[in-house]
Protein backbone atom coordinates (compact mmCIF):
# COMPACT_ATOMS: atom_id res chain seq x y z
CA UNK A 1 0.00 0.00 0.00
CA UNK A 2 2.78 2.30 0.88
CA UNK A 3 4.30 1.55 -2.44
CA UNK A 4 1.55 3.34 -4.30
CA UNK A 5 2.08 6.64 -2.58
CA UNK A 6 2.78 9.39 -5.06
CA UNK A 7 6.34 10.55 -4.92
CA UNK A 8 7.80 13.98 -4.99
CA UNK A 9 10.26 13.79 -7.83
CA UNK A 10 11.93 17.09 -7.11
CA UNK A 11 15.15 16.46 -5.20
CA UNK A 12 15.43 20.09 -4.18
CA UNK A 13 15.07 20.04 -0.47
CA UNK A 14 18.53 20.85 0.69
CA UNK A 15 17.58 24.37 1.48
CA UNK A 16 14.73 26.79 1.71
CA UNK A 17 11.90 24.40 2.38
CA UNK A 18 11.14 26.13 5.70
CA UNK A 19 7.80 27.87 5.59
CA UNK A 20 6.34 25.68 2.92
CA UNK A 21 6.99 22.57 4.95
CA UNK A 22 5.56 24.22 8.02
CA UNK A 23 2.15 24.88 6.58
CA UNK A 24 1.97 21.46 5.03
CA UNK A 25 2.85 19.62 8.19
CA UNK A 26 1.01 21.41 10.93
CA UNK A 27 -0.99 18.29 11.61
CA UNK A 28 1.47 16.22 13.64
CA UNK A 29 3.83 18.59 15.35
CA UNK A 30 6.68 16.92 17.25
CA UNK A 31 9.55 19.25 18.04
CA UNK A 32 10.20 22.53 16.33
CA UNK A 33 13.17 23.17 14.07
CA UNK A 34 14.30 25.68 16.65
CA UNK A 35 14.47 23.07 19.40
CA UNK A 36 16.37 20.67 17.18
CA UNK A 37 18.77 23.43 16.14
CA UNK A 38 19.43 24.15 19.78
CA UNK A 39 19.88 20.48 20.67
CA UNK A 40 22.29 19.77 17.80
CA UNK A 41 24.29 22.96 18.36
CA UNK A 42 24.43 22.14 22.07
CA UNK A 43 25.66 18.61 21.37
CA UNK A 44 28.32 19.96 19.01
CA UNK A 45 29.44 22.36 21.72
CA UNK A 46 29.73 19.41 24.08
CA UNK A 47 31.80 17.49 21.52
CA UNK A 48 33.98 20.55 21.08
CA UNK A 49 34.52 20.79 24.82
CA UNK A 50 35.57 17.13 24.99
CA UNK A 51 37.96 17.65 22.09
CA UNK A 52 39.53 20.68 23.73
CA UNK A 53 39.77 18.97 27.10
CA UNK A 54 41.58 15.96 25.70
CA UNK A 55 43.83 18.12 23.54
CA UNK A 56 45.04 20.03 26.56
CA UNK A 57 45.75 16.69 28.22
CA UNK A 58 48.11 15.54 25.43
CA UNK A 59 49.68 18.98 25.10
CA UNK A 60 48.22 21.75 22.98
CA UNK A 61 51.24 23.99 22.78
CA UNK A 62 53.79 24.77 20.12
CA UNK A 63 57.06 22.99 20.88
CA UNK A 64 60.34 24.21 19.42
CA UNK A 65 59.97 21.78 16.53
CA UNK A 66 56.36 22.36 15.64
CA UNK A 67 52.92 21.83 17.09
CA UNK A 68 52.28 19.24 19.79
CA UNK A 69 49.77 16.43 19.39
CA UNK A 70 46.90 18.48 20.77
CA UNK A 71 47.63 21.75 19.03
CA UNK A 72 45.43 21.35 15.98
CA UNK A 73 42.64 19.45 17.69
CA UNK A 74 42.47 22.17 20.32
CA UNK A 75 41.91 24.95 17.82
CA UNK A 76 39.56 22.79 15.83
CA UNK A 77 37.60 22.26 19.02
CA UNK A 78 37.65 25.97 19.65
CA UNK A 79 36.30 26.81 16.19
CA UNK A 80 33.68 24.09 16.47
CA UNK A 81 32.63 25.51 19.80
CA UNK A 82 32.47 29.06 18.46
CA UNK A 83 30.54 28.14 15.33
CA UNK A 84 28.06 26.01 17.24
CA UNK A 85 27.65 28.68 19.90
CA UNK A 86 26.82 31.14 17.12
CA UNK A 87 24.21 28.78 15.68
CA UNK A 88 22.86 28.27 19.19
CA UNK A 89 22.64 32.00 19.87
CA UNK A 90 21.06 32.80 16.52
CA UNK A 91 18.31 30.26 17.14
CA UNK A 92 17.83 31.22 20.74
CA UNK A 93 17.54 34.97 20.27
CA UNK A 94 16.42 35.41 16.71
CA UNK A 95 12.78 36.36 16.30
CA UNK A 96 12.71 34.72 12.91
CA UNK A 97 13.70 31.32 14.29
CA UNK A 98 12.09 28.47 12.45
CA UNK A 99 9.20 27.27 14.58
CA UNK A 100 8.00 24.76 12.04
CA UNK A 101 8.13 21.12 12.87
CA UNK A 102 11.46 19.30 12.55
CA UNK A 103 9.63 16.21 11.52
CA UNK A 104 5.94 15.47 11.48
CA UNK A 105 4.56 12.67 13.57
CA UNK A 106 3.69 10.37 10.67
CA UNK A 107 7.10 10.99 9.16
CA UNK A 108 8.84 10.37 12.45
CA UNK A 109 6.91 7.14 12.77
CA UNK A 110 8.12 6.07 9.35
CA UNK A 111 11.72 6.87 10.22
CA UNK A 112 11.38 5.01 13.50
CA UNK A 113 9.98 2.07 11.56
CA UNK A 114 13.35 1.74 9.82
CA UNK A 115 15.56 2.74 12.70
CA UNK A 116 14.08 0.51 15.38
CA UNK A 117 14.28 -2.76 13.41
CA UNK A 118 17.76 -1.82 12.26
CA UNK A 119 18.89 -1.29 15.85
CA UNK A 120 17.37 -4.64 16.81
CA UNK A 121 19.06 -6.15 13.75
CA UNK A 122 22.45 -5.03 15.02
CA UNK A 123 21.80 -6.50 18.46
CA UNK A 124 20.67 -9.79 16.96
CA UNK A 125 23.71 -9.72 14.65
CA UNK A 126 25.96 -9.49 17.69
CA UNK A 127 24.61 -12.75 19.06
CA UNK A 128 23.77 -14.94 16.09
CA UNK A 129 26.02 -13.51 13.38
CA UNK A 130 25.23 -11.48 10.33
CA UNK A 131 23.71 -14.16 8.12
CA UNK A 132 20.85 -15.29 10.31
CA UNK A 133 20.20 -11.74 11.45
CA UNK A 134 20.05 -10.53 7.85
CA UNK A 135 17.61 -13.24 6.87
CA UNK A 136 15.30 -12.30 9.73
CA UNK A 137 15.70 -8.60 9.07
CA UNK A 138 14.93 -8.79 5.37
CA UNK A 139 11.89 -10.99 5.95
CA UNK A 140 10.61 -8.75 8.70
CA UNK A 141 11.13 -5.59 6.69
CA UNK A 142 9.36 -7.00 3.66
CA UNK A 143 6.44 -8.34 5.61
CA UNK A 144 5.97 -5.45 7.98
CA UNK A 145 6.61 -2.48 5.74
CA UNK A 146 6.05 -3.99 2.32
CA UNK A 147 3.07 -6.14 3.34
CA UNK A 148 4.43 -9.10 1.47
CA UNK A 149 3.28 -12.57 2.40
CA UNK A 150 5.76 -14.88 4.04
CA UNK A 151 5.80 -16.95 0.87
CA UNK A 152 7.29 -14.02 -0.98
CA UNK A 153 9.48 -12.70 1.82
CA UNK A 154 11.09 -15.95 2.92
CA UNK A 155 12.77 -16.84 -0.39
CA UNK A 156 14.33 -13.38 -0.67
CA UNK A 157 15.31 -13.35 2.99
CA UNK A 158 17.01 -16.73 2.72
CA UNK A 159 18.54 -16.35 -0.73
CA UNK A 160 20.35 -13.09 -0.09
CA UNK A 161 22.27 -14.20 3.03
CA UNK A 162 23.15 -17.43 1.22
CA UNK A 163 24.55 -15.49 -1.74
CA UNK A 164 26.46 -13.23 0.63
CA UNK A 165 27.76 -16.23 2.53
CA UNK A 166 29.07 -17.80 -0.63
CA UNK A 167 30.56 -14.51 -1.81
CA UNK A 168 32.31 -13.51 1.39
CA UNK A 169 33.12 -16.68 3.31
CA UNK A 170 33.82 -19.00 0.41
CA UNK A 171 34.79 -16.99 -2.66
CA UNK A 172 36.64 -14.04 -1.12
CA UNK A 173 37.60 -15.62 2.22
CA UNK A 174 36.43 -12.62 4.22
CA UNK A 175 35.10 -13.65 7.61
CA UNK A 176 31.98 -11.79 8.68
CA UNK A 177 30.39 -12.07 12.14
CA UNK A 178 29.06 -15.56 12.61
CA UNK A 179 27.08 -17.24 15.35
CA UNK A 180 26.37 -20.66 16.84
CA UNK A 181 24.63 -22.03 13.74
CA UNK A 182 27.61 -21.41 11.49
CA UNK A 183 29.89 -22.82 14.17
CA UNK A 184 27.77 -25.95 14.32
CA UNK A 185 28.15 -26.28 10.57
CA UNK A 186 31.90 -26.03 10.92
CA UNK A 187 32.63 -22.43 9.95
Amino acid sequence: MFMEREQNLVPEKLAGEGEEAASANEAGLTVTMKTMELVVAGLLMLVAAIVMYDSVRVGAGWAFDGPQAGYFPFFIGLILFGASAATFAINLFSRTADLSSFVTKPALLLVAKVLAPTAVYLIVMYYVGIYIASALYICFFMMWLGKYSIRKAAPVGIAIPLILFWLFEIAFLIPLPKGPLEAALGF
Binding site: F2, Q7, A107, L108
Partner: peptide, 10 residues
Amino acid sequence: MEEGLSFRGK
Protein backbone atom coordinates in the same frame (compact mmCIF):
# COMPACT_ATOMS: atom_id res chain seq x y z
CA MET B 1 11.55 6.71 4.41
CA GLU B 2 10.32 9.97 5.84
CA GLU B 3 8.85 10.91 2.52
CA GLY B 4 7.13 7.61 2.00
CA LEU B 5 8.48 4.30 0.99
CA SER B 6 10.05 4.62 -2.38
CA PHE B 7 13.16 5.64 -4.12
CA ARG B 8 12.47 8.71 -6.06
CA GLY B 9 14.06 7.22 -9.13
CA LYS B 10 11.74 7.10 -12.08
